[in-house]
Every structure is written in C-alpha cells, then in structure tokens.
Amino acid sequence: MSVDPIHLSVTGAYDRWSRFYDTYDNPMVAAATRVVAQGLGGVQDASVFEFGCGTGRNLSAFLESGAARAAGCDLSAGMLQQARQRDARLELLQHDMAEPLPLDSGTFDLALFCLSLEHISALDAPLREARRLLRPGGRIAILEIHPFLSLSGVAAHFQDGEQEVHMPAYPHQFEAYLNACAGLGLQVISCREWRPCDFQPPLTGKSFKRGPLFPLLLELHFRA
C-alpha cells in the first residue's frame, strides 16, 4: 500500500530531515560536497558566510581548508543544532536569508549559497544581502540544482520511514541568476555545469539516474 507524500514548510521539513540529513543518499549534496572540498577558488585566510548553512558541513570544510572565519544562517533550528555539534568554531544564526542580517556590511570575502536558493521565490533579496556583507572585491558563489533538473520538476525531498516529505521549491532558470546579479552590479567570474562523470573518483548511486552526462549542479561565481 502506497503512502501519499506529505508537504511541510521549509523549516518543518529541514527540522525533520536534520537528524539524518548528512547520512542521506542525496546526489545533489554528494556533488556539492565534492565541489566545496575543492575550495571554490580558494578560501585561505578568508572570512566566509553561507546562506542556508544547514548542518555546517560546508563551513567546517572551509575552516579545514584554511578559512579564518566561518559564519552562516539557516531557518531550521534542527539543522543549526547539528551544525553546533559538528563544529564549535562556527558562528551561526537562525535567520531567514530573504531578510536583512544583523551583521556589519563589508565583513566577508566569500558568500555562499549551496542548495538553498531553490527555496526562495525571488533571488534579489538574498543576493542583495550577500553583496552587502562582502568586502570590496569579494565573491558570491552559487551552487544550486541545475535548471535542467529543477525545471523538469526535480526538487528537494526525502524519505522518512514510509513517508515521502516535500517542501516548497521554486525552479530558477539561468537568466534568473544572471539578471538578479547583474541588477546588483555583480560581475560574472565563471560558470560551470557539473555532471556525474566530471567527478573523480566517480559519484555513486542516484547520481547516475539520468546518465553520466546529465548535469546535476550549476556553479556560478560573481565579483562584487
């Protein structure tokens, strides 16, 4: 007997997912973790802020790669609890990324969005706040589900026991990212589309569901 999916708020879904998020077989997270491990262009001695930092996986990796400071915000208290248990060095705020943060302007070198913008209907507000936080010459890095996937109906969801849990998600086209950043005076540095076959050693499991050449992630870098 099949069980109908349930739909929760973003906060409710991630609170529920938080206790097993880092061990869940999620091809997007697996791919993003690999990309972050490569340093996103270098973080040595940098101050990094992540919007939608979740369990702190990325922020902790940045510190291990030589970042001087790692801070982030997330709506989910459950995810932040996991982040605090992971690494006491992280500076964490429970906060909506679409709202202004209680932080000084011009204090970070890198702002990261990783698998978080799909839960935001309009990109302008969080990207504007990211730009405000950056020092002159700072960078915004975006790692998100590839538009080919999101526009075909693929979005964040998970299985918890017999229940499949869904949450609000908004597919964004390439033009949405580019136009939002251009409107804020941000300069495109680079764009890369990550496919399962691009990773060495190769990704496993669900990552190859659509074949080795079908892109999973979009990586964009902008300069303030």
Rank of each mutant, 00 (worst) to 15 (best):
Pro5Glu: 05
Pro5Asn: 01
Leu8Tyr: 09
Ser9Pro: 09
Val10Gln: 11
Trp17Ile: 07
Tyr21Pro: 01
Asp22Pro: 02
Asp22Ala: 06
Tyr24Arg: 04
Asp25Tyr: 06
Thr33Tyr: 05
Arg34Ile: 13
Val35Thr: 09
Val36Thr: 02
Ala37Tyr: 06
Gln38Pro: 09
Leu40Pro: 01
Gly42Arg: 04
Gln44Pro: 05
Asp45Tyr: 04
Glu50Lys: 07
Glu50Ala: 02
Cys53Ala: 04
Thr55Trp: 06
Thr55Tyr: 02
Arg57Ile: 10
Asn58Ser: 14
Asn58Arg: 08
Ala61Ser: 10
Phe62Val: 13
Ala67Asp: 07
Arg69Trp: 14
Gly72Asn: 05
Gly72Ala: 07
Asp74Leu: 12
Ala77Tyr: 12
Gln81Cys: 06
Gln82Gly: 12
Ala83Lys: 09
Arg84Leu: 09
Gln85Asp: 15
Arg86Ile: 11
Asp87Met: 09
Glu91Lys: 13
Glu91His: 11
Leu92Arg: 12
Leu92His: 03
Leu93Asp: 03
Ala98His: 02
Glu99Trp: 08
Leu103Ala: 00
Asp104Arg: 13
Ala111Asp: 02
Ala111Ile: 01
Cys114Phe: 05
Cys114Pro: 03
Cys114Ser: 15
Leu115Gly: 04
Ser116Gln: 05
Ser116Leu: 13
Ile120Val: 15
Ala125Cys: 01
Ala125Thr: 01
Leu127Pro: 01
Arg128Gly: 00
Ala130Asp: 00
Arg131Lys: 15
Arg131Val: 00
Leu134Ile: 03
Pro136Thr: 13
Pro136Gly: 11
Pro136Arg: 07
Arg139Met: 03
Ile140Glu: 00
Phe148Met: 03
Phe148His: 03
Leu149Val: 08
Ser152Leu: 08
Val154Cys: 04
Ala155Tyr: 10
Phe158Met: 05
Gly161Glu: 10
Glu164Ser: 12
Glu164Gly: 02
Val165Cys: 06
His166Ser: 07
Ala169Leu: 05
Leu178Gly: 01
Asn179Ser: 12
Ser190Ile: 00
Glu193Asn: 06
Arg195Gln: 08
Pro196Ile: 12
Cys197Ile: 14
Cys197Val: 12
Asp198Pro: 11
Phe199Pro: 05
Pro202Arg: 02
Gly205Phe: 14
Phe208Gln: 07
Lys209Gly: 01
Pro212Tyr: 04
Phe214His: 13
Leu218Ala: 00
Glu219Pro: 00
Leu220Lys: 02
Ala224Pro: 10
Ala224Ser: 15
Ala224Glu: 10
